[in-house]
Amino acid sequence: MFEGKKLFVLDLDGTFYLGDRLLPGSLEFVEKVYEVGADLVFLTNNSSATKQEYRDKIEKLGVSGKYFDIYTSAEATIRFLKEHYSNKSVYLLAVPSVENLFRWSGIELDDEDPDIVVMTYDKTLNFQKIERFCHFVRHGALYIASHPDINCPTEHGPIPDVGSFIALVKASTGRDPDHVIGKPNTAILEMLIKDYDVQKDEVVMIGDRLYTDIECGLRTGVDTILVLSGETTMDMVPEDPPFYVFSGLKEIVESMK
């Protein structure tokens, strides 16, 4: 199934690492993809860090920067805003580094009268931010979320993610996001396919979540692999699934030999 593949798109949390620990087979997988001459892109919904912060973390875990690139739902959200709402102001929920990324990318941030509200994975979230965000949503601002993940897997167990915050806003305002940018939205994967100038049959999507990673790969029409190293357990996998199932990256590496 890996013959002729030119682009491997890999999730991070629960697929490649948990917290600050590489999962078994992660380094070997990266080296194998490089050995066969394919490109590796980490595609993460987690918008609580910038591309450079992710790169620094992965390199500190022992992975050479020559092996990979990174694309985040925060970057995709910025790209979406610039392509469709370039002259609109934004009230943003984000950690400081991601807020700076939006600002440096030319997005006009507005805490008083924004046209759009954007929710990323803000680990500095507090009541004042949520109160203001809900106020703008309730009064008709366009509402965008970077991704729909309910929980983020860590070495200590799952923690609330953007999907949980979306549920909070829905309970308060009655509104769902007008746009959700990250996986399973096919646009985020289509962007990579276009950027790397490959065909869909040359792409493999690998992740640990059924409703984001796997759904994104299936909707886009690429070969898709579920790993059982993160959120999904075997009892959650449907009978005769339209995707491949491996225990983790270590087993995938063994199948590529």
Rank of each mutant, 00 (worst) to 15 (best):
G65F: 06
G65C: 02
G65D: 13
G65K: 11
K66A: 09
K66V: 14
K66C: 02
K66D: 14
Y67H: 08
Y67K: 04
Y67R: 01
F68C: 00
F68D: 08
D69F: 01
D69S: 15
D69I: 04
I70Q: 07
I70D: 04
I70C: 01
I70V: 11
I70T: 02
I70H: 06
Y71R: 13
Y71T: 01
Y71P: 10
Y71S: 12
T72A: 04
T72N: 08
T72I: 05
T72L: 08
S73H: 12
S73L: 07
S73D: 07
S73A: 13
S73T: 08
A74Y: 05
A74N: 09
A74T: 03
A74I: 02
A74F: 07
E75A: 01
E75C: 03
E75L: 06
E75R: 02
E75M: 06
A76G: 12
A76I: 06
A76F: 10
A76R: 06
T77V: 00
T77C: 03
T77D: 01
T77M: 01
T77S: 07
I78G: 06
I78R: 03
I78A: 01
R79G: 08
R79L: 10
R79W: 05
R79Q: 14
F80T: 04
F80G: 03
F80W: 05
F80C: 01
F80H: 15
F80N: 05
L81F: 09
L81G: 06
L81R: 11
L81C: 11
K82N: 06
K82Q: 12
K82I: 10
K82T: 00
K82M: 11
K82L: 14
H84L: 00
H84C: 09
H84P: 01
H84V: 00
Y85F: 15
Y85M: 05
S86F: 12
S86M: 09
N87H: 13
N87G: 10
N87S: 14
K88C: 10
K88Q: 08
K88E: 06
K88V: 01
K88G: 00
S89H: 00
S89F: 07
V90G: 02
V90P: 08
Y91S: 01
Y91C: 05
Y91L: 01
L92P: 15
L92S: 10
L92N: 08
L92F: 11
L92D: 12
L92T: 11
L93M: 14
L93I: 14
L93A: 15
L93C: 15
A94W: 10
A94Q: 11
A94P: 13
V95C: 13
V95D: 15
V95F: 09
P96L: 06
P96Q: 09
P96G: 09
S97R: 10
S97T: 14
S97G: 07
V98Q: 11
V98R: 12
V98M: 11
E99W: 08
E99C: 03
E99A: 10
N100D: 15
N100Y: 09
N100T: 14
N100K: 14
L101Y: 04
L101N: 00
L101H: 12
F102I: 03
F102D: 05
F102E: 01
F102W: 04
R103L: 04
R103Q: 06
R103Y: 12
W104Q: 10
W104C: 11
W104T: 15
W104S: 15
S105N: 05
S105W: 05
S105R: 02
S105F: 03
S105M: 03
S105L: 00
G106H: 00
G106R: 08
G106A: 00
I107F: 00
E108N: 14
E108I: 13
E108L: 07
E108A: 06
